[in-house]
Every structure is written in structure tokens, then in C-alpha cells.
Design a protein around this nucleic acid. Structure first.
Length: 403
RNA sequence: GAGCUCGUAGCUCAGUCGGUUAGAGCGCUAGGUUGUGGCCCUAGAGGCCGUGGGUUCAAUUCCCAUCGGGCUCCCCA
């Protein structure tokens, strides 16, 4: 209960901003069939074998969803959502599951919000996705982030680049870290974000993918950058920002925060023009982002940003004796009907204890009810902040409260 | 999958070089005030010392395993 107000406040911001961008919320099952996840990322056996919660029932294999892009795409294909017309603008908030060793902001069950545009290859879609993502952080009050931007091109550009990268690294292959040597054949682009000391000099002078983009990808990237400039969104070009999976194309971006330590990514995303077809649909371009909610909240704490409001109740009925308790119980609804919140003691405690409880619950008013008040039909209304009391009939109290 | 580190009251944390009733502050409950919160005073409740096993006359303390947290690597869809 102490944590949920800030979660709700954040969720409200996400819903409101998504609505302003005219995105629709999509809710998908917590479970997915293993095949869906493996199809997209099966190439990376590490992920499938050690980082997914999997279980089976009879012959069926299921996983707890580790992310939501593939499930959203699955829903798009399964429900023929292209038939709804136009491009689909979808967003989500919810729990995800990864069977990893936890670190700060990286629990086994964690929460993400994100958005996907399916059915458009227009750079406008890329930029709107980035704008929506950033807008949420701005609303929250987080501004000390860095937007890193790159293009990973299309498969054709990427193959050409990988070849060039291998050619460049090959003469010094034995000087690279063991890890990077393993990546050389399989996934040479991952060498670019290696953290190993001995790799750094080679990474620094490595060819950049930009020069290997074909005309189409280059134009697309240029338009994304131009539009971001037009919107006044700052970004840092990072030619080492790469994606591990083949269905990613063109735009890749990441939002990082200096307040998070080694797990410094707040959010990330990019274009995945090849995934819809991979999952079994017609070739359909798409772009999206996903953001970690826990990490956003950690950043808030670092920045002393308070989300959500302190708990409070409008009216606390303080009762003395059984008759007063019965009266309070039957008059609570009349206060609530006016739209105010109202409560009373459930423990038959002393007046002092009830006043203390009212104080703790942050009550705006207390109404004090005892035998004298019931006999006279006048009750004590106490303003808890001003410490002022007036004696009024219940109707007069209702009139005063609803002002 | 690898290395390091931590786990004692609701919270933050002392402590035990293995030994008899395990402590503090905050919070909570009650009283001081026979019908008035916040401040103050007094008293009280609250602990399988994360869990399981081992060593020992004796384990919260030492050892092993396990679960959970934190840091780093792998990974980061």
C-alpha cells in the first residue's frame, strides 16, 4: 500500500500520454507458447535456455512472457489486425519475467510499458515512437537522460558491414578478448559494445555501419534525424549501438540514465521490419519501444521526484459508545454520496486513539459523536489542520463539507 | 552460467572472538488526559537471528547447501 500510489501515478501518466498520441492499449496473456518466443530469439540459445521461465502441460510448452513485442506481433497476426485499417498504434503496461540473476532494477518479475506501430515504415512512425517514450519521462520530471541513436540498416546493408568489420578485425583477431573472438564469426557487431579493455583500441577505429547503409536505409535514417531535429529532441549518434537479433532493421535507439549504475538503460527500441513475417504474418514493417518501470522509479528516487499523493480521507467519524457507532455506520453512506471519502474506527478504541488514527490517516475533518450530540442532534465538526471546531446539525455538516 | 557480498523486531541497524533472559532508534498498543490528534513522559507488545542440514556438551554466531537481496561479468530479446 505504501508503494502503489506512485505506481498508479506513473500508470496514469502513461495512459494519458498514450491517449494524446492516439495509441490504443493492448493486453495480452502472461503466458505464451514457447514456439513464439523461440521463433524470434531462438538463434540466441543463451536467452532461451537460461533466461526464460518455461513449463509444460502435456505436450504443450509455455513460457512466462519475457517481453511484449513478440506477443503483440503474435496478436496482430492471429487477429488479422491489419484488417482494422491503417497502421496499428498499440501500447501496453504489465509484468514480464526473466529467469536471470537479479540486479538493481532487474528483478525476475519486472514491469514494462511500451508502444508499437505495426504497418508503417515511415520515419514519422519512428519519431513518434521516440517522442511518446520521451514524453513519459518528461511528464514524470526525469530529464537527465541520454538518447542514443543508430541505424542497423537492412539485412543487405548489415551483411556488407559485417564483412567489412571482419576484414578489419581479422589481422588482429588473436589480440581481441576471448569473448570477442567467439563473437567474430557469429555476431561480429556485438564486439562493438564489448567492455573488455583489450578490445577498445580496435573498436575505436572500426568502420562504422553508416558508411555501409544502402541508399534506402541511409535516406530513412536521415529523415529520422531530421524529424527529431524539427521536434527539438536531442540525441547522440552511437555507431556502436547494435541489436543482437536479425529481425531488427534500421532505427535503433536507447535511453540511458546516469542514475542507474551498470544497468543504466531506462528504455530501448527500434524498428523490426522482419518480425511480423517471422511470426507468420504478411511482410509488415513495425517500430516500437519498451521501458522498465522499476528503473524509472529508481531514477525518480535518485532525483527526489515524488509521484502520487499522500494518503488522506475527507471525514473521520469519531465515536463514543455503541449508539454513536451505530449512528456513524449508518451516516457514513450519506457523506460518501456527496462524493467525499469517509471512514470510522473499526476497533472500538478510546477517543484519543481514534483522534490519533484520524491524524495518521490524514483526515481533513473529524465528526465527534457521543451521547450528548445524539440527544441534541448537533455534532462537533473538527477541522484537523486548523484545529477549529463548530457544533452543527448533520445536514449543516453535509452542506459545509460539500462546499 | 561465473565471482564477491549481505540476510537479526513492521522499518533502519547494533550485537554474539560459540555459552544462560538477543538490543537501540523510529513505528505500533496502552496509560498520563473519566470526550480531543500532532509535542512530551511512562509502560507494554512485537524476534523459528532467511530456510534446511552438519560440526559441537552447546550454533543466531563456525561449515555446507538452499532461497532471497545487492555488486560485477555473461546476457540484455
Amino acid at each position: 500500500p505504501d508503494e502503489s500510489p506512485k505506481w498508479r501515478a506513473l500508470e496514469t501518466i502513461i495512459h494519458e500520454e498514450a491517449a494524446k498520441f492516439n495509441f490504443e492499449e493492448i493486453r495480452t496473456p502472461i503466458m505464451e507458447q514457447t514456439e513464439l518466443i523461440v521463433r524470434g530469439i531462438g538463434q540466441l540459445t543463451d536467452i532461451v535456455s537460461k533466461e526464460i521461465f518455461a513449463f509444460e502441460k502435456g505436450d504443450s510448452h509455455y513460457v512466462l512472457r519475457p517481453e511484449l513485442t513478440a506477443p503483440v506481433v503474435r496478436a496482430f497476426v492471429e487477429h488479422h489486425m491489419e484488417q482494422r485499417g491503417g497502421s496499428q498504434k498499440l501500447y501496453y503496461i504489465g509484468p514480464m519475467f526473466r529467469a536471470e540473476r537479479p540486479q538493481k532494477g532487474r528483478q525476475r518479475q519486472f514491469h514494462q510499458f511500451g508502444a508499437e506501430v505495426i504497418g508503417s515504415d515511415d520515419p514519422v512512425a519512428d519519431v513518434e515512437i521516440i517522442a511518446l517514450m520521451i514524453r513519459v519521462y518528461e511528464r514524470v520530471g526525469i530529464s537527465n537522460f541520454e538518447l542514443k541513436l543508430n541505424s542497423v540498416g537492412d539485412p543487405e546493408s548489415r551483411d556488407a558491414y559485417k564483412e567489412a568489420l571482419r576484414d578489419y578485425l581479422r589481422p588482429n583477431l588473436d589480440k581481441l578478448s576471448e569473448l570477442s573472438q567467439q563473437r567474430f564469426e557469429k555476431n561480429p557487431m556485438r564486439i562493438l559494445d564489448s567492455k573488455e579493455e583489450e578490445d577498445q583500441p580496435f573498436i575505436e577505429n572500426a568502420p562504422v555501419i553508416n558508411e555501409y547503409l544502402n541508399e534506402e536505409s541511409k535516406n530513412h535514417f536521415q529523415q529520422v534525424k531530421d524529424y527529431l531535429d524539427d521536434l527539438g529532441i536531442n540525441y547522440t549518434l552511437d555507431s556502436h549501438l547494435v541489436r543482437g537479433l536479425d529481425y531488427y532493421t534500421r532505427t535503433a535507439f536507447e535511453l540511458t540514465s546516469p542514475d542507474l549504475g551498470s544497468q543504466d538503460a531506462l528504455a530501448g527500441g527500434g524498428r523490426y521490419d522482419l518480425l511480423v513475417e517471422e511470426v507468420g504474418g504478411q511482410p509488415t514493417p513495425a517500430v516500437g519501444f519498451a521501458a522498465g518501470i522499476e528503473r524509472l522509479l529508481i531514477a525518480c528516487e535518485e532525483l527526489d521526484i515524488t509521484l502520487g499523493e499522500e494518503k488522506s480521507v475527507d471525514v473521520y467519524f469519531v465515536t463514543l459508545g455503541d449508539a454513536a457507532r451505530k449512528w456513524a455506520l449508518t451516516h457514513l453512506p450519506k457523506v460518501r454520496e456527496t462524493g467525499l471519502s469517509a471512514t470510522m474506527d473499526y476497533m472500538s478504541r478510546s477517543m484519543k486513539a481514534q483522534m490519533k488514527d484520524a491524524n495518521r490517516e490524514n483526515a481533513r475533518y473529524t465528526i465527534i459523536i457521543g451521547d450528548n450530540e445524539l440527544a441534541e442532534g448537533k455534532f462537533t465538526l473538527r477541522n484537523m489542520k486548523e484545529s477549529e471546531e463548530v457544533s452543527l446539525s448533520f445536514d449543516e455538516i453535509l452542506a459545509k463539507l460539500s462546499k
